[in-house]
Amino acid sequence: MKVAISSQGDNLDSQVDARFGRCNYFIIIDSETGEFEAVSNQASGAMGGAGIQSAQTVAGKDVKAIITGNVGPNAFQTLKATDIKIYGVASGTAREAIEKYKKGELQEFSDSSVPGHFGMGKL
Protein backbone atom coordinates (compact mmCIF):
# COMPACT_ATOMS: atom_id res chain seq x y z
CA MET A 1 0.00 0.00 0.00
CA LYS A 2 1.37 3.41 -0.96
CA VAL A 3 1.73 6.18 1.63
CA ALA A 4 2.82 9.80 1.01
CA ILE A 5 4.90 11.64 3.61
CA SER A 6 5.39 15.42 3.42
CA SER A 7 9.13 15.84 3.72
CA GLN A 8 11.81 18.52 3.82
CA GLY A 9 14.22 16.40 1.77
CA ASP A 10 14.23 13.65 -0.83
CA ASN A 11 15.14 10.58 1.26
CA LEU A 12 13.92 8.56 4.24
CA ASP A 13 16.30 10.31 6.66
CA SER A 14 14.83 13.74 5.82
CA GLN A 15 12.73 15.47 8.43
CA VAL A 16 8.97 15.36 8.01
CA ASP A 17 7.68 18.75 6.78
CA ALA A 18 4.94 20.03 9.09
CA ARG A 19 3.26 21.69 6.11
CA PHE A 20 1.26 19.63 3.67
CA GLY A 21 0.61 22.03 0.78
CA ARG A 22 4.00 23.74 0.80
CA CYS A 23 6.37 20.92 1.69
CA ASN A 24 9.45 20.46 -0.50
CA TYR A 25 8.94 16.77 -1.31
CA PHE A 26 6.45 13.98 -1.02
CA ILE A 27 8.09 10.68 -0.16
CA ILE A 28 5.84 8.06 -1.72
CA ILE A 29 6.61 4.79 0.02
CA ASP A 30 5.26 1.26 -0.30
CA SER A 31 4.53 0.29 3.30
CA GLU A 32 5.09 -3.43 2.58
CA THR A 33 8.25 -3.42 0.48
CA GLY A 34 9.79 -0.17 1.73
CA GLU A 35 10.42 0.97 -1.84
CA PHE A 36 10.05 4.72 -2.23
CA GLU A 37 10.28 7.64 -4.63
CA ALA A 38 10.67 11.34 -3.79
CA VAL A 39 8.33 13.62 -5.72
CA SER A 40 9.29 17.30 -5.80
CA ASN A 41 6.25 19.37 -4.80
CA GLN A 42 5.52 21.80 -7.64
CA ALA A 43 3.03 23.68 -5.44
CA SER A 44 5.48 24.59 -2.65
CA GLY A 45 5.83 28.14 -3.97
CA ALA A 46 2.32 28.61 -5.40
CA MET A 47 0.70 32.03 -5.02
CA GLY A 48 -2.43 30.36 -3.69
CA GLY A 49 -4.18 27.02 -3.64
CA ALA A 50 -1.00 25.08 -2.76
CA GLY A 51 -2.95 22.59 -0.64
CA ILE A 52 -5.40 21.90 -3.47
CA GLN A 53 -2.64 21.28 -5.98
CA SER A 54 -0.62 19.13 -3.57
CA ALA A 55 -3.69 17.04 -2.80
CA GLN A 56 -4.11 16.35 -6.52
CA THR A 57 -0.43 15.45 -6.84
CA VAL A 58 -0.60 12.78 -4.15
CA ALA A 59 -4.03 11.57 -5.31
CA GLY A 60 -2.50 11.09 -8.77
CA LYS A 61 0.15 8.81 -7.19
CA ASP A 62 -2.58 6.45 -6.03
CA VAL A 63 -1.65 6.66 -2.35
CA LYS A 64 -4.01 5.38 0.34
CA ALA A 65 -2.70 7.50 3.21
CA ILE A 66 -0.83 10.75 3.86
CA ILE A 67 1.44 11.47 6.81
CA THR A 68 2.01 15.17 7.49
CA GLY A 69 2.16 17.75 10.27
CA ASN A 70 -0.82 19.88 9.39
CA VAL A 71 -3.44 20.13 6.70
CA GLY A 72 -5.47 23.22 5.79
CA PRO A 73 -9.17 23.47 4.91
CA ASN A 74 -8.86 23.40 1.10
CA ALA A 75 -6.40 20.50 1.07
CA PHE A 76 -8.62 18.63 3.53
CA GLN A 77 -11.70 19.16 1.38
CA THR A 78 -9.85 17.97 -1.73
CA LEU A 79 -8.49 14.88 0.03
CA LYS A 80 -11.90 14.15 1.50
CA ALA A 81 -13.23 13.79 -2.04
CA THR A 82 -10.80 10.86 -2.39
CA ASP A 83 -10.55 7.93 0.00
CA ILE A 84 -7.10 8.99 1.17
CA LYS A 85 -6.71 9.05 4.94
CA ILE A 86 -4.60 11.75 6.62
CA TYR A 87 -2.40 11.01 9.63
CA GLY A 88 -0.65 13.55 11.83
CA VAL A 89 2.96 13.42 12.98
CA ALA A 90 4.68 16.13 15.02
CA SER A 91 8.34 15.64 14.07
CA GLY A 92 11.02 13.12 13.19
CA THR A 93 12.30 11.60 9.97
CA ALA A 94 10.25 10.09 7.16
CA ARG A 95 11.59 6.65 8.18
CA GLU A 96 10.38 7.12 11.77
CA ALA A 97 7.02 8.37 10.51
CA ILE A 98 6.37 5.30 8.37
CA GLU A 99 7.37 2.99 11.25
CA LYS A 100 4.92 4.76 13.58
CA TYR A 101 2.27 4.48 10.88
CA LYS A 102 2.82 0.74 10.51
CA LYS A 103 2.53 0.28 14.27
CA GLY A 104 -0.76 2.22 14.23
CA GLU A 105 0.64 4.95 16.49
CA LEU A 106 -0.50 7.90 14.37
CA GLN A 107 -3.72 9.82 14.85
CA GLU A 108 -6.03 10.28 11.86
CA PHE A 109 -7.24 13.80 11.09
CA SER A 110 -11.01 14.16 11.10
CA ASP A 111 -10.83 17.81 10.02
CA SER A 112 -8.30 20.39 8.86
CA SER A 113 -5.78 21.09 11.62
CA VAL A 114 -4.83 24.65 10.68
CA PRO A 115 -6.53 27.61 8.96
CA GLY A 116 -5.81 28.55 5.33
CA HIS A 117 -2.40 30.09 4.41
CA PHE A 118 -0.79 28.43 7.45
CA GLY A 119 2.22 27.21 5.50
CA MET A 120 2.97 30.49 3.73
CA GLY A 121 6.25 32.20 4.53
CA LYS A 122 7.32 29.49 6.96
CA LEU A 123 10.81 27.91 6.98
Binding site: A46, G48, I52, A55, A59, N74
Partner: peptide
Protein backbone atom coordinates in the same frame (compact mmCIF):
# COMPACT_ATOMS: atom_id res chain seq x y z
CA UNK B 1 -6.23 27.08 -13.63
CA UNK B 2 -3.47 29.54 -12.66
CA UNK B 3 -5.03 30.06 -9.23
CA UNK B 4 -5.49 26.38 -8.26
CA UNK B 5 -9.21 27.03 -7.87
CA UNK B 6 -10.20 23.67 -9.40
CA UNK B 7 -9.31 20.17 -8.25
CA UNK B 8 -10.16 17.01 -10.15
CA UNK B 9 -9.80 13.90 -8.01
CA UNK B 10 -11.40 10.48 -8.27
CA UNK B 11 -14.28 11.37 -10.58
CA UNK B 12 -15.06 14.54 -8.71
CA UNK B 13 -14.54 18.16 -9.71
CA UNK B 14 -14.13 20.58 -6.80
CA UNK B 15 -14.30 24.33 -7.34
CA UNK B 16 -13.01 26.72 -4.69
CA UNK B 17 -14.94 29.98 -5.24
CA UNK B 18 -12.67 32.20 -3.16
CA UNK B 19 -9.67 31.31 -5.35
Amino acid sequence: CAYNAIAVVKNKVLIFPEL
